[in-house]
Design a binder for these strands. Sequence first.
DNA 1: ATGTATCGCGCC
DNA 2: AAAGGGCGCGATACAT
Length: 616
Amino acid sequence: MSKTIVYFDLETADAERLWDYGPGFVRIASVAVNGGDAYTTTDIDGLVELLHSADLAVAHNGLGFDLLALERYHGLDLARLVEEGRVLDTLLVVRQNDPPLPAKVDGKRYDLDSVCKRMGIGGKLASGDGSVLKKLAREHGGYDRIPVDHPDYLAYALEDVELLRELCKRLAVDDYCWRETHVMYRLSRISKYGFRVDVPLAERLIAEQDARVEALKQELHERYGLPLTGKKPQLSKAGKTALEAAFRDCGVEPPLTDKGNFGTGKELLDRVLEENPGNERLASLCMVLRSMNGERSVAGTIHDCTKADGRVHPHISAEQGSGRISVTKPGLTVFGKRDRKNGLERALLLPDEGDVLIGADLSQIDARAMAVHSQDEGYIAALEPGKDLHDEMAAAVFGESGWDRSAGHHPRRGEAKAITHATSYGMGAAGLAKYAGCTLPEAEAQLTALAVQFPKLDAYKRFIRDEGRRQVLENAFGRRMRVEPGKEHTKAPASMGQGTARDLLMEGILRLPTWLLRCLRAIIHDEIILSVPEARADEAETAVLGALQFPYLIEQGALEVPVLAGLCDRGRDWADCYRTDHAGWPEIAWEHRQQPTCDDADCTWHTAPDTTTNAA
DNA sequence: ATGTATCGCGCC
DNA sequence: AAAGGGCGCGATACAT
């Protein structure tokens, strides 16, 4: 009994409009069944029928695009296909077979054409690289206006599916690929359902920011002759020239970046201020520059990404070197959280009507990943439920003396935090000293103490650096990760820590009950956010914790490492989820923002936008 | 016009 | 010999 394998590729309207184009988004499909002749068709419902009856549906980036389009507009039962193991996304497989270097270097190496070229597939089929399609779209006034019988269009589509079939013959599909299929399907629910946006708030914040930026530009112009063109004149060539003169006017040499260029970044300003205490003119210049630089356009980005349904539908992919998840358009991973200045950015995202946001984050998950791999008894013990890793680290490095375990935290917990964080990633004594603000000998002593207290952790890092010289590492779950030659010392441990941490969270995603999948709204490396009906919030939180927490055993006979998670506050918006963490910043709480006024002079919600900075 | 590089900022 | 890692995105400069 032979299996039916369907290879397919879609040509659509502008891919950016997957979630809001409406019917007609999918224009033609190219299809090949087993070894039969490839063909193109406009009968997309027919393709879906074919996929429903097939043993395997194969597409490149299918879980990022093609299958999602068929699900949205043509009734594809994607959940069932994935559940029954009948979906193969070759993009996921290629990344596993030939893992990427960091995205900066390797970002565009995995589109179908690049992959096939690299593997020597293509032969006489020469069009490649999508330029044909782009040209057609330009000629006809858009991707959705290319005639569906245009011979070049059809040839292009046909070639893609033939390449896909050839590619498939050369791929090795391991267990990790099948697991990853389930992972990416589940994460694609975030794109599908989208995250509701507070559009009026976005518009208000944008307007306020525009006013603020205009005032800052004006100030720099009047005081230092900065040109007024562009959004960030301090970054423009003419702007830099003006500012260099401004620094000299203050009696100071213009600060330079590591590459020797003039720069006005936070660190450079800090340094120049430190070196010139009491220079008021300089202080005032730096303050305005800092305000200018600090102006981000998160509200604008969100607004631009919001579709007609009032929601953003972020794109989810696993293209990072460690396998970490990228969330883009908009990039939800970088929204303000720690700085009060940006704390309200998350207030732009809302639960569905009648819902509340819930969320949970894994506790020190990178450290747990290192514990899993190193099997260091002491390190694992420090991660036991009820213990605080940083307290235990402080005790290990600085000693138990002066710490009454029953009375609270270790007095030097703050310092230990830096050490824990730094050492998993191979930071040296110099780096640690700078990061932690201690002297070099102190940093050296701390690193030595660490190696003595956690010998297996230390040994593991040395081992994995060595392994890294083979260029490809495998994390605890079997994900393959490439290490840049020459950077093993720092990147090998980092990849294992981040990569295994990533898959520990994905394990939680796979353990979520099905009903919560449509509630998923965001994923931020070690944290997930969901929008759930208020009446089911208790149930949902219990289920989320149940899914995310489990003892992890890397292999038979190994020591178990507990994976633990904590809930955030239930939020009326995303910022509201962290009101307890930031009790000192009342505006983080939704309740507070409902008041017409408040007494906190530093409140970033009620205080009228201060555009002047007014140094005088 | 389009793509790459650089800076600068934010998060994990 | 010494070395924190991973990223997204806006804004700008420069090459093609």
